[in-house]
Amino acid sequence: MNRRTFIVTAAAAASAAMLPRFAFAADYVEYTPGVIEAALAEGKTVFVDYSATWCGTCKRQERVIESLRSADPAYDKAMTFVKVDWDTYKNADVTVFREIPRRSTLIVLRGEDELGRIVAGTSEKDIKGLLDTGL
C-alpha cells in the first residue's frame, strides 16, 4: 500500500469511527404540538431549544450544545432534546405559555417545573450549567 492510499484510508476510518458520536449528539425531536407535554408526562426531563434557522446566536448555541453533548453522553441519557422552530411557533401556546421572549431561548423542564433558562446566551459555561440542571 502506498503512502497516499494509507493516509486516505486512515483518515476515512478515523472519520467513520467518530460519526456515530456526532450524529447521536445532534439528535433533536422536532417540535409538534403535544410532544413536550408527552415527554414530561412520561417523567422525562426536556431540554427545549427555541431557534430559527437564520439566527446567528441560535447557531452558536447549537454548536456549543452539540460539543457538550458529544463530550458527555449523560446529557442524552437524562434528557429529551426538543427544537422549536421560532418562525413557525413564535405565537403558539408552546411559546406564549412559557413566556419565551425571543428565539435563542433555551429551557430545561421537569414535571411542572422550569429548572432553568438562558435567553440569547452563548457562553459554554452557562449552557453547560443549564444542561447540568437536567442531570
Rank of each mutant, 00 (worst) to 15 (best):
M1Q: 14
T5G: 11
I7M: 09
V8R: 10
V8A: 15
T9L: 15
A10C: 14
A13I: 14
A17E: 04
A17Q: 08
F24Q: 12
D27N: 11
D27Y: 02
E30T: 14
L40R: 07
E42M: 07
T45E: 06
F47G: 02
Y50N: 05
Y50F: 15
W54F: 13
C55T: 01
C55Y: 01
G56F: 06
Q61P: 08
R63A: 14
S70R: 07
A71E: 15
F81G: 03
V82R: 05
W86T: 04
W86L: 04
D87I: 02
T88P: 00
Y89D: 13
Y89A: 06
K90N: 15
K90E: 10
A92V: 03
A92M: 04
F97L: 11
E99F: 06
R102Q: 10
S104P: 04
L106A: 02
V108F: 05
L109K: 02
L109S: 03
R110Y: 09
D113W: 05
E114S: 12
G116A: 09
R117N: 09
I118Y: 03
I118L: 15
A120H: 10
A120N: 14
T122L: 08
E124N: 12
D126K: 14
I127H: 08
I127Q: 09
L131V: 02
T133I: 10
T133D: 02
